[in-house]
């Protein structure tokens, strides 16, 4: 196996009394599109900031391209394309100045590709960032994050609060990055349908902990919704290992379940019930079930 692009081991980060990241471990292999999902304040941005070296690990280690991003920011950041929800770009710059400035930092900057993106995103090169809409600013940020074909593209809630057209541009950028050999993407988003479209691995973060981190197909295969029919009416749902959420009353109860179908059948049998209906879950449903259960 190749050396991982990102390797995080037992990462702990506290802000005052609040533990923002609690013993987080994660490995991202080259060519992976990793979707990071979680509620607001779950710790996604904190995790991404550690990857960028903008936060130093209090405990544990963070390696990006095999290097420590804090002690070697030049080595790490020159291979990363980064776009955040906040934008945080110097608004006094014009688009062409932003391009010229950014180009100097990346030896792999591709002028032709930058011009192509400029036209594709319909950006006015003479426009000042402060005078542009949020969507246009995101496009400008995406342009400078993509134009040097970075080995790792990090997008932190890039499509939050943006219209569908800009979101489509951002998704297109991720897909293009995947199409380039060996490129890796780490992106966090609330829009789980987007994550589901492009990610091949997901990590669900809650209260600074990774609840699930696996291949998207494996995650989807290991979650299901089922209806159980009991022989006798129940006043409350029974305890069942792997169950995430319950609803229903009397003899018929619906649950979301983490595990395979066979183990559910066996467990239901032990409780004196049988599975009368089962269906797969979307990523959004899995997220709601996991986060609601945790």
């Amino acid at each position: 196996m190749n050396e991982p692009i990102i390797e995080i081991k037992n990462l702990v980060r506290e802000f005052g009394n609040k533990r923002a990241l609690d013993n987080v471990s994660m490995t991202i292999q080259p060519g992976t599109v990793m979707g990071l999902v979680g509620e607001n304040g779950a710790g996604k941005t904190t995790l991404i900031k550690h990857v960028l070296g903008l936060l130093k690990a209090q405990q544990g280690t963070v390696k990006v391209f095999g290097m420590d991003p804090v002690s070697n920011p030049e080595g790490v950041l020159s291979k990363i394309g980064y776009l955040s929800e906040e934008g945080d770009m110097p608004t006094w710059m014009k688009v062409h100045e932003l391009m010229r400035y950014s180009a100097a930092f990346y030896p792999t900057w591709d002028d032709q590709y930058a011009m192509k993106l400029l036209e594709e995103f319909k950006l006015d090169p003479g426009a000042k960032l402060s005078k542009m809409s949020k969507g246009q600013r995101s496009r400008a940020g995406l342009l400078v994050a993509m134009a040097y074909r970075p080995e790792l593209l990090v997008l932190d809630e890039p499509s939050s609060g943006l219209d569908p057209i800009v979101r489509k541009d951002i998704l297109g950028a991720i897909i293009r990055t995947i199409a380039d050999d060996g490129r890796t993407v780490l992106f966090s988003s609330h829009l789980l349908s987007e994550v589901e479209r492009v990610a091949d691995q997901i990590s669900i973060v809650r209260n600074g902990k990774i609840l699930i981190s696996d291949n998207l197909d494996t995650v989807k295969e290991s979650h299901l919704r089922a209806t159980l029919l009991f022989e006798e009416p129940l006043s409350r749902h029974p305890d069942l290992a792997g169950s995430l959420t319950w609803s229903g009353s009397g003899k018929e109860w619906q649950l979301t379940y983490c595990g395979d179908g066979k183990s559910l059948d066996a467990a239901a049998k032990l409780l004196g019930a049988k599975v009368i209906e089962r269906a797969g879950l979307s990523l959004e449903e899995i997220f709601v079930a996991q986060v609601g259960a945790a």
């Binding site: 960028l52 903008l54 920011p73 030049e74 950041l77 945080d88 770009m89 110097p90």
Partner: peptide, 18 residues
């Protein structure tokens, strides 16, 4: 930044040493 006194991400994420 005025909000939390950290660097603008644009500045902090420059591929350049301190």
């Amino acid at each position: 930044k005025h909000s939390d006194r950290t660097f603008l991400l644009f500045f902090g994420a420059r591929p350049m040493s301190d």
